[in-house]
Computed example of a mutant assay.
Amino acid sequence: MDPKTGNSWKGLVSELERFHMIATELKVSGRFLLRPLDAALQMLTNLLARILGSNLVRRHFHLVLSGLVLFGPLLSFWVSKHNIFANSNHFLYRKFLRSTWGWTCILTGSFVLLLSFSACRSVPVSLRHFSRIGLAGLLWWGTRRLLTLLEDAAGSCYEPMPPAQDVQSPAAAAQPPLLLHEDQTKASCLRANLLWRGYEVSQNVLILCLCCLLLLEEISVFGRHLSHEKRQQRSPGAPIRILFLLCVVLLIMWMFLLLCLLANFPNWPSQQLGGALGYLGWRGLYQGWYRLNLRWCCPGLPGEELFITSGSVKEPKRL
């Protein structure tokens, strides 16, 4: 063997051994640093699961949300018109409010899939539980289409006309004449920078209320999942805990955005009608349809048939 080749080979081996030692040291130090973070994550998620899974929260959350929708516009008398959330082009409105259902579907759907699969290890059961998110999305799509048709039928598009030169009265200057535009939808009217007048339902309040109620229903079973894993002498991994924490953050953000809308842009009774429709949608799904006996057209309640140990009987439905 060539001495130069042997020396280069020995040098390469020594370099690989050195890199392996460095990687081992980094791995040990990384575990040492991540251990307190993992402990903090477990403590926080256990506490939040206990709070959100309690009967007090689950049975009265819709009342808290209803009170927020009813009395939230009263905050407009104390909120400054110059605060950062009074601007409709704020970052939270542009990035989150306009894609409320997308954020809810991604995070909640991922959490439901991961929780159901880790609990029963069955793909069909996981997809059946995930179908609740799809049915809620279908309800939101149909409701939005119906509300758009009703708004187009009940409203009219107007073009403000400049007042005549010989009219000098203050009333005429304050209320310029309007020119009616026929065969205009609300979307096309607003795109043309015209004036739309008619009855409407706040779709932002509707989807925020529906997503808040849906999020609480889906993540409230995490406490039962923790108890089930403890009985099985297992510990839920960090991914499902992080997803649960992200869903809780999303729930808080939706409630904060709802409060900002009601306080900074009060619109009675449009917002209250939107909140009522969101509540009725949640009531019809989670308090009606999903409580039927399990069959091909009913996905069941969150957590149903997931936390059953061998030799145990089926859990009763939640009241």
Rank of each mutant, 00 (worst) to 15 (best):
N55W: 10
R58F: 08
H60N: 05
F61Q: 06
F61K: 05
H62F: 15
H62R: 12
L63E: 10
L65K: 06
S66W: 11
G67N: 05
G67A: 09
L68I: 07
P73W: 01
L74T: 05
L74D: 05
L74E: 07
F77Q: 10
F77V: 08
W78M: 09
V79R: 05
H82W: 15
I84R: 11
F85V: 08
A86R: 05
A86P: 02
A86D: 06
N87L: 09
N87P: 08
N87C: 08
S88G: 11
S88A: 14
S88V: 12
N89Y: 11
H90L: 14
F91E: 06
F91I: 12
L92K: 09
L92A: 14
Y93H: 13
Y93M: 10
Y93G: 06
R94Y: 07
K95Q: 11
F96L: 14
L97M: 14
R98P: 03
R98T: 14
S99W: 15
W101E: 10
W101F: 15
W101I: 14
G102F: 15
W103A: 08
T104N: 11
S110N: 07
L113T: 06
L113M: 14
L114T: 12
L114V: 13
L114Y: 13
L115D: 01
S116P: 06
F117W: 13
S118V: 02
S118P: 00
R121Y: 14
S122K: 14
S122M: 09
V123E: 02
P124V: 06
P124D: 06
P124L: 03
P124F: 02
R128I: 04
F130E: 04
S131P: 02
R132Y: 00
R132C: 01
R132S: 04
I133R: 01
I133H: 01
A136W: 00
A136M: 14
L138D: 09
W140F: 13
W140Y: 12
G142A: 13
G142T: 09
G142I: 06
T143G: 09
R144Y: 12
R145E: 15
R145G: 14
L146I: 10
L147M: 12
T148A: 13
E151F: 10
E151K: 15
D152N: 15
D152I: 04
G155F: 03
G155P: 04
S156H: 13
S156C: 09
S156Y: 09
E159T: 11
P160L: 04
P160D: 05
M161Y: 05
M161K: 08
P163S: 07
A164F: 03
Q165N: 09
D166H: 10
D166F: 09
V167T: 07
Q168K: 12
S169V: 04
P170F: 05
A172L: 03
A172N: 00
A172C: 07
A173P: 00
A173H: 06
A174N: 01
A174I: 00
A174T: 00
P176F: 02
P176Q: 04
P177C: 01
L178A: 02
L178R: 00
L179A: 03
L179H: 02
L180K: 02
H181Y: 03
H181K: 02
H181L: 01
H181W: 03
E182P: 01
D183Q: 00
D183L: 01
D183N: 03
D183S: 03
T185R: 04
T185S: 10
